[in-house]
Design a protein around this nucleic acid. Structure first.
Lengths: 176, 176
DNA sequence: TCGTTACGTCAGCCATGTTGACATATTCCG
DNA sequence: CGGAATATGTCAACATGGCTGACGTAACGA
């Protein structure tokens, strides 16, 4: 009996630990979107515009359908924000070369400027968090986040079975 | 020249690393809310109801104003979801003992049941992610998430200045 | 030529956030 | 005691950003 009550109860710890994890996601995400939301509001834009600007900036020349499957929203939802971004010249579109049905998207200079402003904010927040947590913690953060993610989304990131830094610190034969 | 191009450019790495972090937050949060949203939809409820149910379950007897400052939404927004939860008997309220203006909130059995169902899902997802990432990674995840969070929100969690695992791996003199 | 694909658009609905104004009950303070 | 402050609730209106359904056009490809 003393085993369970006076020593720390592993089941209780587990529940508490997991609940804290749930709250981490909620509170961190809220903080993460706070400042960008303010900047966007000043421009008459919303969080949905941010996502489009972010992923177009991340992958210039992305097609509408690729953007749709990245965002996992309907084309009608995208249309609303995208047409505003086109009209206000944050984003520019050009027909695809091989497939002229496609509309390939890229940021205009104005769009690049806004993207930089928005993302810089989140980069700074993350950079500070990474710095204060330390390199080892960041590696752990990566691992956990990758595992929370959907498998499909996970493939967006370089597989770490062969880390990009392989060889830097003489990591063996490089097999696999 | 070769210094910058043939070796890996640390500035590029940094930007890429931070952008990946941004995407981790986005994709992980999306996955995290996916299943609960489905369950809620079947009940005619939404994500906002989940938050209320979660925090009332987490802190039974919480007052409306405490709930408001946890959620950081307006009382009008809360009112809409809370009154539905009261009407449909997921949540019960009773006047405060010391201050009879207060309405203290707690889950009904029906509410407990739904909370369990919703949270169990997220707990399982997190538990799997934690397990696959390993204990050390989880500690890193904690550290990074705590640092991303707002300072006010951070105080909701037990201060880790004296970590529960200190001494386990002979972590030095314990200075700082 | 004809079916499929990529993209766009109109219309309407729903959830959830916001502001502003106002009401009621209770508490606290001078 | 009486009035200010506090805790809570409610009505109304608006914005954002999801959704479904329906329909149209241009280009590709067998």
């Amino acid at each position: 009996m003393a085993d369970v009550t006076t020593r720390i109860n592993p089941l209780f710890l587990r529940d508490e630990e997991l609940r804290q994890g749930i709250e981490f996601l909620y509170f961190a995400y809220r903080e993460f979107t706070k400042e960008p939301d303010t900047i966007l509001f000043e421009q008459g834009l919303g969080r949905a515009h941010h996502r489009v600007i972010y992923f177009v900036g991340r992958q210039p020349g992305i097609s509408v359908s690729d953007l749709l499957s990245t965002l996992r929203i309907t084309k009608q939802s995208l249309s609303r924000v995208l047409s505003q971004l086109l009209k206000e010249e944050f984003v520019h579109q050009r027909p695809g070369l091989r497939d002229r049905r496609q509309r390939l998207l890229e940021l205009t200079p104005k769009g690049v400027e806004l993207e930089r402003k928005l993302t810089e904010n989140q980069r700074k927040l993350l950079a500070r968090a990474y710095r204060e947590a330390g390199a080892e913690a960041v590696e752990g953060f990566r691992k956990v986040m990758m595992n929370i993610m959907n498998e499909d989304d996970r493939t967006r990131f370089p597989t770490n079975t062969t880390p990009p830094l392989a060889g830097w610190r003489g990591s063996g034969t490089g097999a696999q």
